[in-house]
Design a protein around this nucleic acid. Structure first.
Lengths: 210, 210, 210, 210
DNA sequence: AATGAATGAGCATTCATTCAT
DNA sequence: AATGAATGAATGCTCATTCAT
């Protein structure tokens, strides 16, 4: 069984190898621009080999996406379930968590957000699509939970908590993509950090009950 | 000269015809998925004819985009320069204006926002790219102007006005795309209106000086 | 009838105008590279108008060719029938005549020679093809005539006179095209004149009976 | 390693297969007229497969061309360096060598010569262009060498040896293309052999010092 | 398990030519 | 006579994917 395990381990490693190569390549050339051959080359495999590990290009891309969403979920749930923080503090912590995710793997985040708002989404297999949907629901719930708590504690405005979560998520994705677009125009410096900070500051203030 | 005018008018009509077909087709299939032939068919022209009115697929798409951005600029500047409104009221008016644009031509708005945050942007000709950049700058300035006024009147927090504008724009684009994505998952109803309303409400409150 | 004549004259002028434009454009962009629109623009007409004067692109090109061949025939026959020149002197005069044609309208000559040795020739209408063939035969005969005379006078080797003519023509076309090709490689100066001179010198010597 | 070798051999064979098909197709329809699909069909491959062996249509064509030029170089250098032949005999041997090349692969020779004097040459990649240039220089030098020797031995006229080479090359190419053109008109028999013979005879005589 | 090799399906763009006005 | 407008037909090339070995 040691053999079995080793094989399993190696298989995972090669999957990882491919995913890393894909991440790098997608980041450098975008989803449309990156060919399977590009990725294979980066991964030091033949194109055909990728198909032993991923059903197709979409699946490969989706795996990257799901991985990212997993990190997000973890982070968001981490914030949500952090003991000893008031809802207001959690909202502030949200900002930090989101930025950390962005900073940890910027290009991948951008890829995921782009993909999320792209036409490509509907070409996904129903199964993938629903997995992504589930993931999305999860981190959204985590964010919503924070607001829910705040409402129950009577410190936040009483509104639909998912709407709050949508707004936070929209600000985050909107800012990431927009700042990146602007950087493409101007190649000016990255304003995400301060702008995201300001956004959360405003939201924090604006959400208070009175 | 009547003849001249009629010809001119007809030419414009045909351009319109093509743009409408393109808008519809891009909306249905996305930029990548829509072929020139698709658009031509929808417009009831031959593919070659499209090239009499637009230099290439990119230009056609960009025309749609610029048209939309023009409407946005007009709307934003309209709000900015509306007499008799306090900055707070203008922020509120912003919400209405943005939603109107969205409502007026939903699919086109989504197209533009998608494109704006896509990789495709970098393949544009420098000229197109810079025209889009200019347009973007303009509506951003209009939005920023509102906040600037509010600061000078002492009713808004003192922050970089462009950052405020970025946030409003990010919320808008983020929400539009996100709600659309969610609709793709659930085909649930359109929550944009209330959620955007809530977002602006929060921002309005959150931005007040004390 | 004055009116009739004027119209006729004007018609010819416009034909000329188009041919000149075509010549210029073909010279600049080659037969394949020059579009009807390019030529029309240069001629200050609409593309459709060209078709009132020439059946199609090939005919237009062939007209240029025939015009060139006419000049050649005239020149060659001029040399052939020049009184008071010995066959040897006529061969020498041939060189001058050929070079004059080349110098008079270099790009057109090159175009014609290229076309003559191209695949395009076989797409010509049978009628055009046969007109070109006739023309070719004529200048070839003129050249051959010179050698024939030389043979009858007993000063030239006794060989098939058309073969002599072929050789002269081949040297001329071969050198023009080859020197032009080399110029494309090196953009060095034009060696046609001296090389053609040398060729004729050699031929003159080599053709003498003893 | 037997396996390795076999694969290598097969690969070369497929390349050959494609080149042969291309040769045939270019010969039949010309460079412009032959489509990749035509060639692929002839080679019994799919169009996409051709691109595994050649970067594009130009490269494929250029390979044919370079192959031909290689043969030419070899032949010309063979003549030049043949021991025991006087310069005069070498000139005579040149005729035989040129005709052999022509006879060995007539359509390819015609293709190459046509291409050499066509507009298409300037669309070539700089790299290809320079390789062709180098090749051309080589066979020209070999021819020139013969004349140089003859001059040093005092049997040939003292002129620029490259000019001699140009003339020989021009006669050859000029005759090949011209005879082929005439055959297209008349589909009469092939006069290249005797006419080339006569040309070399004349040149041989004409080039002698006295 | 890995891959070399092959391909089907797709697509933007160009241009000579036509014809109603 | 002149042309604005429209188009049919053509083509090189890319790439995700498959499969025999």
């Amino acid at each position: 069984m040691g053999i079995e395990e080793r094989k399993e381990r190696e298989k995972k490693m090669r999957r990882r190898q491919i995913m890393d190569a894909a991440k790098k390549t997608f980041a450098a050339k975008g989803f449309g621009g990156a060919t399977i051959e590009d990725i294979a080359e980066e991964a030091e495999f033949s194109p055909a080999t990728l198909y032993l590990y991923f059903k197709n290009k979409d699946e490969l891309h989706a795996s990257l996406m799901l991985e990212m969403l997993d990190i997000l979920i973890e982070k968001m749930e981490g914030v949500y379930s952090q003991d000893g923080l008031s809802p207001e503090e959690k909202v502030k912590a949200l900002e930090k968590a989101l930025y950390e995710v962005y900073e940890y793997d910027t290009m991948n985040v951008i890829n995921v957000l782009r993909f999320q708002s792209s036409e490509a989404l509907r070409n996904l297999s129903p199964e993938l699509s629903s997995r992504i949907k589930d993931h999305s629901r999860n981190y959204l719930r985590a964010i919503a939970g924070i607001f829910e708590d705040g409402m129950q504690e009577g410190v936040f405005l009483e509104r639909h908590p998912i709407a709050f979560a949508d707004i936070v998520w929209a600000v985050f994705t909107g800012l990431v993509l927009w700042e990146h677009t602007k950087k493409g125009f101007d190649s000016s410096k990255d304003f995400l950090r301060p702008t995201l900070g300001l956004a959360i500051e405003i939201i924090s203030k604006g959400i208070k009950k009175n």
